[in-house]
């Protein structure tokens, strides 16, 4: 065989081998780069995964906390509902309330009770804001006003010369207890009153709360003396108001959650509308009038959730206390 042929075949093979080696080297380099990229992606993926896991854990923790808080709030809400007084309907007077918290629990509260055989006391409060923090203050006020012998309501009734002084003293006591310039205490508006069932006298102290409305002889009369909310000033100088009340008269007290109930198309529900509905239903039983207000308000609100707590309290004065009757009841319960 020609040596040239062999030589050329050898050179061909050598060139091919060299090319193949260069190619192999290039492919190895590419492979290594791909490997590095892969590793980088892997690390990034791991980081994303870690972050994701962390977020999931955080989420689980939040959900657990939320569930606990929600459960607690539901318990608090039912406690708050338990604190509200049952409707009262006696021969001398009747009282009914409507209460609808904006969230689970409310900063609004009301109560009424007999302070003596002839004095029916009542109050309504509206703690600024609503929700848990406001509800705590509302609970605290409730516990201080609870009618017990050494409670501030009873004490002031017995130590003061007259009902006017007694209501002022009671609101002042609350102010002293809740005023603290150093703390973030919540302040509240309130209306605390006494209905003297024997004398036919209504005495109250208004602390920044909407005025009460007296329905007497078919007319609504707004009676108010303004005043500062409780817990804002050290010495707010609360005043008392007093008026005669006749059998058949009705007293309405409410929180601004009603009048400021807002409808996107129609605006605020307003005081005039409330007073007017109550006037139209003046001859109905208190609970019926309240049901009417509730229905109108829900329709206005266009939904079951209110923006603010809603409270309405109606008190009917029917007739003076019959001392003999009272004595017989008192004897019976002994």
């Amino acid at each position: 065989m020609d040596a040239d042929v062999l030589n050329r075949a050898y050179e061909r093979e050598k060139a091919r081998r060299k090319k193949a080696e260069a190619l192999l080297e290039e492919k190895s380099r590419e492979l290594y780069l791909s490997y590095e990229k892969l590793q980088e992606s892997h690390e990034q993926l791991q980081q994303t995964l870690d972050e994701h896991n962390r977020q999931t854990e955080e989420m689980t923790r939040l959900v657990t906390t939320y569930t606990t808080v929600k459960d607690d709030l539901e318990i608090a809400a039912s406690l708050q509902a338990d604190l509200l007084p049952d409707p009262v309907d006696t021969t001398t007077h009747a009282a009914h309330g409507y209460f609808q918290p904006a969230q689970f629990i409310a900063g609004d509260a009301y109560d009424y009770f007999m302070l003596s055989e002839s004095v029916f006391a009542f109050y309504i409060i509206d703690v600024e804001g609503h929700g848990a923090a406001s509800a705590m203050t509302s609970f605290a006020v409730h516990s201080q006003l609870t009618p017990k012998l050494d409670g501030i309501c009873s004490r002031n009734l017995h130590t003061c010369n007259n009902h006017a002084d007694a209501v002022i003293a009671t609101v002042n006591d609350l102010n002293n207890n809740f005023y603290n310039p150093d703390s973030k205490n919540k302040y509240f508006t309130m209306l605390y009153g006494m209905l003297d069932l024997q004398a036919g006298k209504l005495t109250w102290c208004q602390a920044g709360h909407p005025a009460l409305t007296l329905y007497s002889e078919g007319k609504p009369i707004e009676l108010g003396c303004g005043g500062f909310p409780v817990g804002i000033l050290e010495e707010p100088g609360f005043e008392a108001a007093e008026c005669d009340i006749k059998p058949g008269d009705r007293v309405a007290i409410y929180s601004d959650g009603i009048t400021e109930c807002y409808n996107e198309n129609k605006g605020f529900f307003g005081k005039d509308r409330l007073i007017d509905i109550l006037l139209q239903n003046r001859s109905s039983e208190a609970y019926q009038s309240i049901a009417t207000v509730r229905d109108e308000l829900l329709a206005w609100n266009a939904g079951d959730e209110f923006n603010d707590d809603v409270t309405l309290l109606l008190i009917d004065y029917k007739k003076p206390v019959d001392q003999a009757e009272w004595n017989s009841v008192a004897t019976l319960s002994l």
């Binding site: 065989m1 020609d2 042929v5 050329r8 061909r12 091919r16 190619l23």
Partner: peptide, 20 residues
């Protein structure tokens, strides 16, 4: 081998092909 060599010579192609 001579035949293939001469074919490459005729065409002027290098003949060092890499499979891939």
């Amino acid at each position: 081998l001579e035949a293939w060599d001469s074919i490459l010579q005729t065409t002027g192609l290098s003949g060092n092909y890499i499979a891939s």
